[in-house]
């Protein structure tokens, strides 16, 4: 037994046979392709001329390339940029507030010396299991909380996410030793100083993860804006796209009933290449933001305060 271990060189620990390695590369490579190809297809369609779509349908090799959909998107001007701006406001504002709440809440749940800990764990966990249902939630949000046609309507409903509380609490539990908090208090740090100057800096990987998840959720949300926002000046980009899609679905379902008016609705519905151009606009910022978060996650993983 002992001889077997001593014989193995350190690099053997990660060594696999060439065949297996090749196989893994093929599988993972295929998986990556499956993720990337649809998006490449979207980009190609967005650069395809309408004539090409009409004659040969969607294709990786369109007969005619064109910038017309982008030209059209830019000619929209106001609506696009306003929706873009709205998306940014909602995502940035929402993420900051939501992460702050998440850290505060989950840190409290993490501290064993907090008396009401059990109650608040149950309190947040309960909402994960049982929701109020759509109609009551809608009425409370809209008529009691006044979440109607403003930015808060798109930020507040997603501020508190009990799932992320649990993730964050577990992160604290596994990375922060009680000794650290103890030593902070011995050094005379108050609760806020302990949290923001000692705990938060070493919790960057956890915070970056929940920030990324929250930001993605805010950026991609369209259902909540649909419910609470009817002012065209406030709608975010994702809902702008969803609106077009809903309109097409609506038409597919109801054109038989509407009669002559269906033609007018069709005239207001953008073509496929334009919708794909919008998808590109939606994905681009997130694709750009991802490496930024990734850097934090990776660097955070390698930093620690208590070296073992």
């Amino acid at each position: 037994m002992t001889t077997a271990i001593s014989k193995r060189k350190p690099k053997d620990l990660t060594h696999v046979s060439l065949k297996t390695e090749a196989l893994f590369h093929v599988i993972l490579g295929g998986f990556c392709l499956a993720c990337v190809i649809p998006f490449i297809f979207v980009i190609i369609i967005s650069f395809t001329a309408e004539e090409s779509i009409r004659t040969i349908g969607f294709s990786f090799t369109p007969t005619i390339w064109s910038l017309e959909s982008y030209r059209y998107v830019f000619s929209w001007g106001d609506q696009l940029w306003r929706s873009y701006l709205n998306s940014f406001i909602i995502t940035v504002g929402g993420t900051i507030l939501s992460v702050l709440i998440c850290v505060l809440y989950s840190y409290t749940l993490f501290r064993r010396d907090f008396k009401l800990r059990k109650f608040f764990i149950f309190f947040s966990f309960f909402t994960m299991m049982f929701g109020g249902g759509l109609a009551p939630t809608y009425m409370v949000s809209k008529n009691i909380l006044g979440l109607n046609n403003n930015y808060w309507a798109m930020i507040v409903p997603m501020l508190v996410n009990p799932f992320l509380f649990i993730v964050m609490r577990t992160f604290f539990q596994t990375t922060i030793p009680d000794a650290l908090i103890e030593s902070a208090s011995i050094d005379g740090a108050g609760e806020y100083r302990t949290l923001f100057q000692i705990i938060v800096p070493i919790s960057k990987p956890g915070i970056a993860t929940i920030a990324l998840l929250t930001a993605l959720a805010y950026w991609n949300e369209w259902f909540i804006p649909m419910l609470y926002v009817s002012n065209a000046n406030l709608i975010p980009l994702q809902y702008l796209l969803m609106k077009m899609q809903n309109q097409i679905d609506f038409l597919a379902k109801n054109s038989a009933m509407i009669g002559a008016d269906a033609v007018n609705i069709l005239a207001q519905t953008p073509r496929e290449n334009l919708r794909m151009a919008l998808v590109v606009f939606i994905v681009l910022p997130i694709a750009c933001a991802y490496p930024f978060f990734q850097r934090y996650i990776v660097s955070g993983l390698t930093i620690g305060s208590v070296k073992g």
Binding site: M226, S230, N231, A232, K243, M244, N246, Q247, F250, Q268
Partner: peptide
Amino acid sequence: WGTWADFDQ
């Protein structure tokens, strides 16, 4: 201003 997309819901 309900739209074709959101009026029903």
